[in-house]
């Protein structure tokens, strides 16, 4: 009941939309366009967006480019450590279909088999304008309460888990958590 109010309240959704905090986690080449988006020419702080190095404080995970299995493990862990509600923007053609690395043995071809993505940006090195457009679109979705990737993840956890296990092997979570023991608490 209480959760219902938290999820649908107009004021809360407005505040969520106007203050998206990004995790500082550059996963691929697209990360090079984030500083220009953050600084004088494009300045995403106008919309209340800042980047924070702490995962617990963040709401938005930007997947800025190609994803290798080793990175994907970290992405999943980071995503699960973030607090609900949380959103993902996938950035560039690589997360969509591996783009120019379509025949590489070490890139993940379809990202949305493993984690839920709210907004996609097409383009090989999307321009800052495109990033801003995606951010604004996500803000609109959040305001209307439509960015529900985190709910999809909870509801279809079995599906995502099965795909993840197929890629990394059965007990990858345990192994990874063993490595990062002191950074993960739940």
């Amino acid at each position: 009941m209480g959760f219902q109010v938290l999820e649908t309240s107009k004021l809360l959704n407005y505040a969520r939309a106007r203050s998206l905090w990004i995790v500082t986690f550059c996963t691929g080449c697209g990360g090079v366009e984030l500083p220009p988006t953050a600084t004088a020419r494009f300045d995403f702080e106008r919309f209340g967006i800042i980047s924070t190095p702490s995962i617990r404080q963040a709401d938005l995970l930007l997947i800025t480019g190609y994803v290798t299995p080793k990175t994907l493990k970290r992405i999943i862990i980071v995503y699960e450590m973030m607090r609900n509600p949380k959103y993902i923007i996938a950035h560039g053609s690589c997360p969509i279909n591996a783009g120019i690395y379509w025949d590489s043995y070490n890139t993940v071809k379809k990202l949305d088999l493993y984690i839920p993505v709210d907004v996609w940006i097409a383009g090989c090195m999307p321009r800052p304008e495109a990033i801003l457009r995606a951010l604004v679109k996500l803000m609109r979705m959040v305001k209307e309460g439509k960015a529900l990737g985190w709910k999809r993840y909870l509801e279809n956890f079995e599906f995502y888990r099965k795909n993840q296990d197929r890629l990394f092997g059965k007990d990858w979570r345990k192994r990874e958590i063993e490595k990062l023991r002191f950074y993960i608490h739940d």
Partner: peptide, 20 residues
Amino acid sequence: RIGPPLYQPILDVIKLWSKI
């Protein structure tokens, strides 16, 4: 830069309270 509006931290605080 242009920077955020002055009431931005208030929105931030409301958002942080809205975490589920």
